[in-house]
Amino acid sequence: MTRMASPYGVHGGSTYTPRTMSTAEAVPAGVDDAVNSQILKVSEDRIQGFHRYPFRTIAEDSGVDLDTVLERLRAMVEAGTIRRIRQTLMATSLAPGALVAWKVPQDDIKATFDYMFEQDPFSGHVVTRTTDRETPGSQYKLWTTLKVPKPYDMDAHCRYLMTKTGAQGYRLLPAKKLFALGVGHVRRRTIEPGEKTDEPGRVLDTKIVDLTDREWRILMALKREFAPAEIVEDPWVARAAEAGETIEDFCEVAASLNERRVIGRFSTFLEHVKKHSDGTQVTRYNALFHWRVPEGEQLRAGQEVGRHHCMTHAYWREGGPEFADVNIMGVSHGTDKERVLEHKAAIDAHLESVGIPVSYTNVFWGGRSEIKPSEISPIAYREWCAREGLDPADMTA
């Protein structure tokens, strides 16, 4: 491997030495900077699978030189523009999961939110949601994502969380199918209502893949987010050592997991709700759309929703009577509420145009929101049980 000279030291290593900059020399860290935008249009969602040199791939695909990519990504992480950089996993293939709607008294929502985000490593997205009027399910004002690795049980986990919080009830909404999406927030800002792919969204199954302890150890090192000092040309050397592997063996196992569709994308995740240090905000509105389509049409409807560029997620989830029997759900973000509703109206019209009638629909608007990667390892679950004073056997189905 050729090692390249840089003001940050040798890129082939696992650390860098930051240079001292005056205010005038400060590296731009906002999403509206032209170079940063060029990088983010690639780094948010276009680096699919495992790459031996992921930052080099970002540089090649964005047309920005590697030194600048490394410098700008470090600056955006340090400024909070990017909330994390990490290798994502196909968590739906590694641990059973669900969207969880929680019924929490208004006075207890803040404390319950804080506990889910700060104390439960298996809850990922934590969002408060409201509707524009009283509707089926509008009493569920706190929503989380949850992953509980086998052989442990999501219901047992939720019942335990109820003992630690003000939650009075919950509804598990596991995904039957997921529909592949992939437009990052930076590119999504210019999307017009109705813009979609030529082909229906790709269907992703939720079948769990069994892994060995060694594979779990490598995955845990692989998925941990990168600190600024770890944003170097060859980031996997240190992670291989962390997992007790040679770099060759580490990458060989990672490549095999990639072939088994356990690996997601290498991604830079923007802070898309809170304001950045330069005052910009990637998005202001986070909308969870609900649709009820005829029985038997869920798969086709999910693919038609999933082809729309405005969507960040789309799922087949059965809402049950609490949510008026909706069966397709998806999330869209935007800076203008009316624009978000225009995107939804375009999807509604498209579903009707392809012969999928929508008999009920709703929007749950996001309020306070925090996101962290969910733990998915059974090793991590046993360690959590020990910290909580729980018998792991009591947390199985």
Rank of each mutant, 00 (worst) to 15 (best):
T212W: 03
D213I: 08
D213E: 15
D213K: 12
D213L: 13
D213C: 07
E215P: 07
E215F: 04
R217L: 12
R217E: 12
R217M: 10
R217Q: 14
I218Y: 03
I218R: 01
I218P: 02
L219S: 05
L219K: 04
A221T: 07
A221F: 02
A221S: 15
A221W: 01
A221C: 14
A221Q: 06
A221K: 02
L222F: 15
L222W: 08
K223H: 09
K223F: 01
K223V: 06
E225L: 00
A227R: 14
A227V: 12
A227M: 12
P228R: 08
A229V: 04
A229P: 01
A229Y: 13
A229M: 11
E230Y: 05
E230K: 07
E230N: 11
I231R: 04
I231S: 05
I231T: 06
V232K: 09
V232Q: 12
E233L: 02
E233H: 05
D234P: 00
D234A: 14
D234W: 08
D234Q: 13
P235R: 10
P235Y: 07
W236Y: 13
W236D: 03
W236E: 01
V237Q: 14
V237P: 01
A240N: 05
A240C: 08
A240K: 06
E242D: 14
A243P: 04
A243F: 05
G244L: 02
E245Y: 01
E245L: 01
T246F: 00
T246W: 00
T246E: 05
I247H: 12
I247S: 13
E248C: 03
D249K: 03
F250R: 05
F250V: 06
C251M: 12
E252Q: 10
V253L: 10
A254L: 11
A254R: 01
A255K: 13
A255Y: 08
S256H: 12
S256I: 03
S256W: 07
N258Y: 09
N258D: 15
N258I: 01
N258R: 06
E259M: 10
E259Q: 14
E259Y: 04
E259K: 15
R260K: 15
R261N: 13
R261P: 00
V262N: 04
V262T: 10
I263F: 10
I263C: 08
I263T: 11
I263D: 08
G264A: 07
R265E: 06
S267H: 00
T268G: 09
